[in-house]
Design a protein around this nucleic acid. Structure first.
Length: 611
RNA sequence: GCCUCGGUAGCUCAGUUGGAUAGAGCAACGGUUUUCUAAACCGUGGGUCAGGGGUUCGAAUCCCUUCCGGGGUACCA
């Protein structure tokens, strides 16, 4: 086990300023000890601290193997030497024991109680010092031809949580969404609606706008396939049929008209996009995500040509005979890459180059995070490399937060095969499940109607969000629609339940935030374990932000909840006679609740007062 | 082919400046409630950390290699 102490994750040269490292004095003292005893000066990084494993005495362990090189003694003796020194030179360290190359040290209960006071019983847990830096997080970035699905849900939750984390870690954060609202795929739904829609609108059909438009995208594909089939019957090859199908040719005509600014096409496009935006807005709202700035590709797709010129004049790009523009990245182990078509029109990377510049001009941010699936790893590698070659100083701050696809047991989600897990449906299902479970358990006596609904939503979405966020971003995620997401064990509802449980104890115990002076003489193990965990929180926030990894927070909050439940089970809180002890335990409970709530908030998950 | 990311218990996952006997949850089995919320707690069983080699006092973790899976390698986005 031995989960490492939070601060060990910290990278050097970090931009994130933690308020303090509660264990850092141990490292300092150890360095002193080594200098004194062995006359050796060693870098801080050679002192490894880890949490003491449960089966041994102590809370913090120093690994002493590396010191034997110059101590010229056995690991046991080396540990004992240092242990003696630590106990003698710190009032906070009361004992040590040595097992092989591991020096386990016990900190005093007074120390732990101080830590609790210092770090937790204040308003701003998990809020690190402002670092004066600005970061942009782009996420979601949907196409306007179909509704959001489970893959988008992962993207949205990740992007939102990372933005929250960076904000907590001291950055100024700008959340952006780059909407892909143009192109051939959009024309397909437009055309299908025009041909087969009979004027259907969201209000006439009662359909959510994005769903309605999505239906026509599917319809296009169906009709298109029919045309292909009949052309092939007439003896065309598959490729010819695909190219010559009237629908496809019409869609391409429509795209050209759109680019030419044809009034009717633009009107249709605007109308249908509005429908989609209305739909997306509802989904985003339910999901609890939002943006500070929305970019539309219809406004940015022509950008980037200036950069192409710049690149040519700087000799970074070169032109081929057909006028197409390329960059040679073979020196970097990549390929030659097209950056502008021969006819002068943009490709994906052209507009991304332009958009990157636009974003920078707009915000002058120090860092810019793109939350985009790992299928685009190569694209972003190339994009960033090009910007660096162009000498853009800000290119160093770009980062592709690549995450794994969400797969079904049957493999990839495919809209054509109807295996897509729709975001709205999924959220609604989760809320239903929460409703059923909660009512079965009889947990909502005394709740008003709206309170119940709010609770079901909180739990259902909590389960879903936690399920998606607890997994490390870059790993692919398996989702089985037939197996509902759990509400027990390592889940969002478990953590929410723990929070509600604490709130209930606090209420029944008459807890008031002021009574913080009470302290027991001796801590129970469960109490010390809990304090130890709570004290790590700020460092966990720093690490999670640094690694763009909400899963670190998700797993931390789970660990904390488990420890609380153990504590809750093993000791009485409001029923102890000793008023001091009772108050202390209430404080500890309140502190735990505060960290749970704050940690979950960073993940975009709300926690209830009762459940 | 080449590039890239994964492979840890039956299933889903933790474990990353290399450290002790690799941990949780689910599923299975057994126990805990006249006492602060049992969506909880405690216990049992379950592992060739994909295979092999190397570096090291020490490897799930670093290096090499093989196998398996995902993704990319478009004048699509």
């Amino acid at each position: 086990m031995s989960c490492k102490l939070g601060f060990i994750f910290r990278k050097k040269n970090s931009n994130i300023l933690s308020k303090f490292d509660p264990m850092n004095f141990i490292v300092t003292l150890t360095l002193q000890a080594i200098k004194k005893i062995y006359g050796e000066e060693i870098p801080e990084s050679t002192v490894t601290l880890q949490e003491t494993r449960k089966e041994f005495d102590g809370q913090v362990t120093i690994v002493t193997f590396p010191f034997t090189r110059f101590s010229k003694k056995s690991p046991e003796q080396t540990g004992a030497d240092i242990g003696e020194y630590l106990v003698a030179n710190s009032v906070d360290i009361e004992a040590y024991n040595v097992i092989k190359g591991f020096l386990n040290i016990s900190l005093t209960d007074v120390f732990w109680l101080d830590q609790l006071d210092k770090q937790i019983l204040k308003k701003d847990v998990g809020v690190l010092r402002r670092n004066g830096r600005k970061v942009m997080v782009e996420y979601s970035s949907p196409n306007t031809n179909k509704p959001l699905h489970l893959g988008h849900v992962r993207n949205n939750l990740l992007g939102y949580a990372v933005a929250e984390l960076l904000n907590a870690a001291g950055y100024d954060v700008v959340k952006t969404n780059l909407v892909n609202d143009r192109g051939i795929h959009i024309c397909k739904s437009m055309l299908a609606w025009q041909k087969f829609g009979n004027g259907e609108t969201p209000s006439s059909s009662g359909l959510k706008g994005d769903k309605l438009v999505g239906n026509y995208y599917v319809r296009f594909d169906q009709e298109y396939k029919k045309e292909i089939a009949s052309l092939m019957e007439k003896g065309r090859s598959e490729e010819e049929a695909k190219r010559e199908a009237p629908l496809m040719m019409e869609a391409q005509t429509m795209l050209r008209k759109w680019e030419a600014g044809d009034t009717d096409v633009i009107k249709l496009w605007e109308m249908m996009n509005e429908w989609v935006y209305d739909g997306f807005e509802k989904t985003y709202k339910k999901m609890g995500v939002n943006f500070d700035k929305i970019y539309y590709e219809s406004n940015t797709y022509l950008l980037g040509k200036d950069i192409i010129e710049e690149g040519i004049s700087k000799g970074v790009f070169f032109k081929k005979d057909d006028n197409s523009v390329w960059i040679d990245l073979t020196g970097e182990g990549l390929d030659e890459k097209l950056v502008l078509r021969g006819d002068g029109t943009s490709v994906y990377i052209t507009q991304d180059l332009g958009t990157a510049q636009l974003k920078y001009n707009d915000y002058h941010m120090d860092n810019s995070i793109y939350v985009v699936g790992n299928e685009q790893d190569y694209h972003f590698k190339v994009l960033f490399l090009i910007l660096k070659k162009l000498g853009k100083s800000w290119a160093e701050g770009l980062y592709h937060l690549s995450y794994g696809m969400v797969d079904l047991p049957s493999g990839k989600m495919k809209s054509r095969e109807g295996t897509v897990v729709d975001a709205d449906d999924l959220m609604a299902d989760m809320i239903d499940t929460a409703r059923n479970r909660t009512e079965e358990l009889g947990k909502v006596e005394g709740f008003s109607g709206p309170e119940k609904e709010a609770l079901y939503e909180m739990i259902g979405l909590g389960a879903l969000k936690y399920f998606l966020l607890k997994v490390e971003p870059k790993k692919r995620l398996l989702f089985d629609p037939n197996e509902s997401i759990d509400f027990q064990g390592h889940t969002g509802p478990f953590i929410q339940y723990t929070h509600a449980r604490i709130k209930s104890v606090l209420t029944k115990g008459g807890y008031k935030a002021e009574i913080i002076k009470a302290k027991p003489a001796i801590l129970e193990n469960t109490e010390r374990d809990l304090i130890k965990e709570i004290v790590k929180f700020d460092d966990m926030v720093a690490s999670a932000a640094e690694n763009y990894s909400p899963s670190l927070i998700a797993n931390y909050v789970y660990e904390l909840s488990k420890l609380y439940n153990k504590f809750y089970h093993e000791v009485s809180i409001i029923k102890v006679e000793d008023i001091q002890l009772k108050n202390f335990r209430l404080n500890l409970s309140a502190a735990t609740a505060q960290v749970i709530a704050r940690g979950m908030k960073l993940l975009g998950i709300d926690v209830p007062e009762r459940m």
